[in-house]
Nucleic acid binder design. Structure first.
Lengths: 297, 297
DNA sequence: AGCTCTTATGAATCATTGA
DNA sequence: GTCAATGATTCATAAGAGC
């Protein structure tokens, strides 16, 4: 697949282009911008982004680490940025936040719970929580906990009428159908009502000839480790699944905390435009290389 | 296995026995008590329970349904009960809460998040969140969401030094791969997003040759269906896993919202004492039958 | 008894239609 | 208008039947 030319600009360069950008009323598509997303996004018009998928710097007690925001300060740090996300997102767009609280002093920290509550106060709808279950994490053991093998993928929306292309993420039907659907009896042919009066009923005959079914809200995706240069905590398959589900071809995908650029790679791979923002020049450089590298596709 | 004699008492009968119980300083072991857990537990001494595992009535908008607590009132309904849980639990004991918020008006309701925050204010430590991924959840697809196939199992503790028997829940590494390969069907092959087995590269080498490995904090357990008389939403395997992990033989397991008695069955099956409480006489009767039935073991 | 094959069943949500 | 009924939608597990 041809990846075209990728732009990568510093914040200064971006602000120089920005006058033009406003005059032409065009977005800096397929561009990597080096800067703080809050500052960068303030120059964007309202309602211009179809999907925001991001895995922000995780809360970290060690203040020196790149991107390490102290858990106690995380919500206050996040909210001014999510305010810009809310403004630039189209009404029918979606914001997917991949996040997981870490253990602080033997307890799960509560900043993610508090963040969800605050985001709702900010105007977001908390539509769904998907679970990213990491299939291939190696065994681990601590005195009082096991390997943490899952992360939250929180879905937020501006309105209840958001875009969703469910067929794009359908999966092959399970092996059960081969045997079950061979010979059908009378109850299989009619709708069999649930005894719990839930309104649920099943009609086995509906499944005959079906090859694809809808997935659930648990995503089984392997972590991407041992990759070439970068240590991408965010495997391309994760943003890719949400890009397929929530955007159409040529839609605009934003990752305000781009890191090594998995979202950008996933967007290009699926013929969507991307805008990636990161404060660290080395990550911007790495992301540009990855998006332009044919080995990613 | 011999199940012994199971007691089942009404609240009145329980209060008659209760004088004796206090005098003898013994707990009503292997007893099913019909009443509200808050009222019942107030008669219990402090620090007498090793493990509380429960799946309380879920929040429900339909007020008529049994156990249906309105989501907006759920936290206020729960807190006086969890206050008693905190009092009766031993310092080294654990409280496992299986719960999941439902969709209200297109959004995930926030009462579970609020409950976690309030439980911490009440004095609980929020140690961990396990995910129960339901392998065989029934179908579902709506205009803007997929099937909800997971629930939270929240671990709370009184102190950081809680009992944990990690070896009791180890999984055979060979067995895992053997059964996995045996059942390998089209679904497994095509749904597996992992393109490379690169994750099994470095540190996995430490585990090669070992017979048993520790599990993660994602539990893959099927819902219990097609069972005889009862419809246990809570499969025995779920409380059983936590009973093995957090208690030793002859420890005392409490389920304050017993329902059809899966926790009681799991406790007896693993030679732990149980105390089950439920407000509904029909559930107390059903639970007694299940615990005494040899077909459950 | 022991094996395979068949069949029943389970914590739901939303738009639409009918009363 | 409000409220209740209806349709859509998987797969693992265990009971039961057949051999």
């Amino acid at each position: 697949m041809s990846t075209g030319s990728i732009k990568s600009v510093t914040l200064n360069e971006f602000f120089q282009q920005h006058t033009t950008f406003n005059q032409l009323n065009t977005l800096p598509l397929d561009t990597i911008i080096c800067g703080d997303c809050e500052e960068v996004l303030r120059t964007f018009p309202d309602n211009c982004i179809d999907l925001i998928v991001t895995s922000p710097p995780y809360a970290d007690q060690r203040k020196k680490t790149y991107g390490g925001i102290h858990p106690d300060l995380y919500v206050d740090w996040f909210l001014p940025r999510s305010k810009e996300f809310l403004r630039v997102l189209k009404p029918e767009g979606t914001f997917v936040l991949n996040i997981k609280e870490r253990v602080v002093d033997g307890e799960r920290h509560t900043f993610v719970l508090e963040l969800i509550l605050e985001l709702r106060k900010q105007g977001w709808l908390w539509t769904e929580e998907f679970i990213w279950s990491k299939k291939n994490c190696y065994p681990g053991k601590w005195p009082n906990r096991f390997r943490d093998s899952w992360e939250r993928c929180l879905q937020f929306n501006k309105t209840k009428k958001f875009k969703m292309f469910q067929k794009a993420v359908m999966v092959p039907i399970g092996g059960w159908s081969n045997t079950r659907l061979k010979n059908l009896n009378q109850t299989d042919l009619t709708r069999d009502e649930s005894k719990t009066k839930s309104g649920f009923g099943k009609k086995i005959a509906n499944w005959v000839g079906r090859e694809m079914v809808y997935p659930t809200n648990v995503l089984n995706i392997a972590t991407e480790c041992g990759h070439k240069n970068h240590s991408a905590a965010f495997p391309v398959g994760l943003p890719e699944w949400f890009i397929k589900l929530f955007t159409a071809k040529d839609d605009v995908v934003l990752d305000p905390f781009m890191g090594s650029g998995s979202t950008a790679v996933a967007a290009k791979k699926n013929t969507r435009y991307f805008i990636g923002i990161d404060t660290q020049p080395e990550y911007c450089k790495l992301a540009k290389e990855r998006v332009e590298s044919p080995t990613e596709y």
